[in-house]
Amino acid sequence: MTREEKSIAIEDLTAKLAGVSVVYLTDTSGLDAETTSNLRRACFKAGIKLEVVKNTLLEKAMEASDVDFGDLPSTLKGNTSIMISDVANAPAKIIKEFRKKGQKPILKGAYITEDVYIGDENLDRLASIKSRAEVIGEIIGLLQSPAKRVLSALLNNVEGKSEE
């Protein structure tokens, strides 16, 4: 790779990292072609961008980015794939699903809205993070519950009076 190609690759990676709130770094080395293809397909269906990257280029892109990735660049050793998503727990769920059949992909680290998680031991915690849609659904459910009880009580009260 020439210097100019490296510079372009760093600019592209920096642009991809700009404004993202969810970035996972994984090790996908050793996956066979079929498993890799299935992983890419699952990521595409979930709206996750998956790309194998060169560690030095990604590290320079992280440094050039306005985002503070904390200690995440320290995980850039060996084979690295980057997963970029809008949903915080989506990449973790896909990794967990693929780990049922094998030992990879391995979570190196993740950046989720200013929080940095280092190490594969965080996978369960990341998978259990509720998405924005799930949180909104729970809030709506909680707000609707008292209203439903009031309406039910009023309807029961009205029905009881009309029978008298």
Rank of each mutant, 00 (worst) to 15 (best):
S65P: 12
Y111R: 05
T26R: 01
L13R: 10
I106M: 03
L25Y: 00
S29P: 04
D86E: 15
A18G: 10
V23R: 09
A88F: 04
L58F: 15
I140W: 04
N122T: 03
L76D: 08
R40M: 12
K96V: 00
A133M: 07
L25P: 05
V87I: 14
Q144S: 09
K101P: 01
R99L: 00
L72D: 05
K16Y: 11
R3E: 09
V158G: 03
E11K: 14
L126S: 00
T36Y: 11
S162K: 15
D12H: 11
A88D: 09
A61D: 05
K93N: 02
E59V: 05
S131M: 05
T113V: 11
L50T: 00
L126G: 01
S21T: 11
N55S: 12
N156Q: 13
L151K: 15
L58N: 09
R125A: 11
Y24S: 04
K77I: 07
Q144P: 01
P146Y: 06
R99I: 01
E163Y: 13
S131T: 07
S145D: 05
K45F: 13
V53R: 10
L72C: 06
I48G: 00
L123Q: 00
S81I: 04
S37R: 15
R40S: 14
L123D: 03
N38H: 13
T28Q: 10
M62F: 15
D68R: 09
Q103M: 10
L143W: 04
I84C: 03
M62G: 09
G30P: 06
I139E: 09
D86A: 07
E4I: 09
A153M: 14
I48L: 02
T56F: 09
A153P: 03
E59P: 04
K130N: 01
G102V: 00
A61H: 14
V116T: 09
T26Y: 01
R3C: 05
I10K: 13
M1R: 13
I129A: 01
K130A: 04
V53I: 11
D32Y: 11
E34C: 04
N157A: 14
I8P: 00
S81T: 10
M62R: 10
V53Q: 07
S74A: 13
L17G: 10
E121A: 04
S37T: 14
A88E: 13
I106F: 00
D66H: 12
S21P: 02
V116G: 06
Y111V: 03
D115C: 07
A110K: 04
I8G: 03
K96L: 06
E4K: 14
V52S: 12
